[in-house]
């Protein structure tokens, strides 16, 4: 279970540009829940993810996973049990390493990085099968450098890499936003499948209202550092794009956009 309690986040404290994004922000996500988060730019979606991952410090409040307070835990240590896929497809992989080398790195997460050979030949078939699952023809490109793949292919590999090791949390940060509609659809289906198969707890930020409705058991809409809509269970299943869009437009009008 993820718990954010009384989170306060202030940008540029003590300067003229000081802005308070979160004030006493609370959020609880149950194990195994797949939460989609929507909201306009600047509503605090990405800040929320950064606070969970530890790449953004908070001015007050606490973050805990599974009852353990991790507010002071360093970013890289939190990643032991957190996986994150970024909006920018080049963020999740090493461009000058091959697909095989990238997968080998991910496969070794949580184990010591010692002086044994990086690529385990026995695992290659497993990698090949995982890539074949993506149906992007990547299984024949194991020795191709990551940098020469398209954004969608890179994002798919990033997705595989992140979900290779056991996770408490999967964080998807607008991970289809930089892709063309068809590729976005493929990646989104892949995401849904992996989350269901591995029974992952996931938080997905997206600008695509349809994805937010179609995927996940819970839908959050954020506005100016607060949650304005929280649908779960049956309510969520009944919701359609138009309903959500209406709320979305309302807050946008209030903001003067």
């Amino acid at each position: 279970m993820l718990e954010l309690k009384n989170i306060t986040k202030v940008y540029d404290p003590g300067t003229v540009t000081e802005t308070t994004l979160f004030k006493n922000f609370n959020l609880t996500v149950q194990d195994g829940q797949f939460v989609s988060v929507v909201g306009s730019n600047g509503s605090g979606k990405t800040s929320l993810l950064n606070i969970i991952c530890g790449s953004l410090p908070v001015e007050g409040g606490s973050v805990s996973i599974g009852g353990r307070n991790i507010t002071k835990v360093k970013e890289f240590r939190r990643h032991t049990r957190i996986g994150r896929v970024y909006q920018n497809p080049s963020m999740g992989t090493c461009p000058s390493l091959t697909i095989l080398e990238n997968l080998s790195l991910a496969d070794n997460k949580g184990k010591p990085f010692g002086l044994t050979p990086a690529v385990n030949r026995k695992r290659v078939e497993k990698y090949r099968a995982q890539l074949a699952d993506l149906k992007l023809g990547l299984e024949d490109k194991l020795h191709v450098k990551m940098g020469s793949l398209s954004g969608g292919q890179r994002q798919a590999v990033a997705m595989v890499m992140v979900t290779m090791s056991p996770l408490d949390f999967l964080i998807l940060d607008e991970h289809t936003a930089a892709l063309d509609p068809r590729t976005a659809e493929i990646i989104m289906q892949l995401t849904g499948r992996i989350i269901a198969e591995k029974k992952l707890t996931a938080i997905m930020v997206t600008h695509n209202l349809r994805y937010a409705i179609e995927y996940g058991e819970r839908l959050l809409m954020m506005d100016r550092g607060g949650i304005v809509l929280d649908l779960a269970g049956e309510e969520k299943q009944k919701a359609c794009v138009d309903d959500v869009l209406e709320v979305f437009n309302q807050i946008s009008i209030e903001c003067g956009n």
Binding site: E75, F76, R78, T80, S90, M91, G92, S96, L97, N108
Partner: peptide
Amino acid sequence: LLLRAVGDNDNVVTSLAR
């Protein structure tokens, strides 16, 4: 390989919890 990864994209190293 981890050393090569850090210069290439240090973000990946963080995701590996290193």
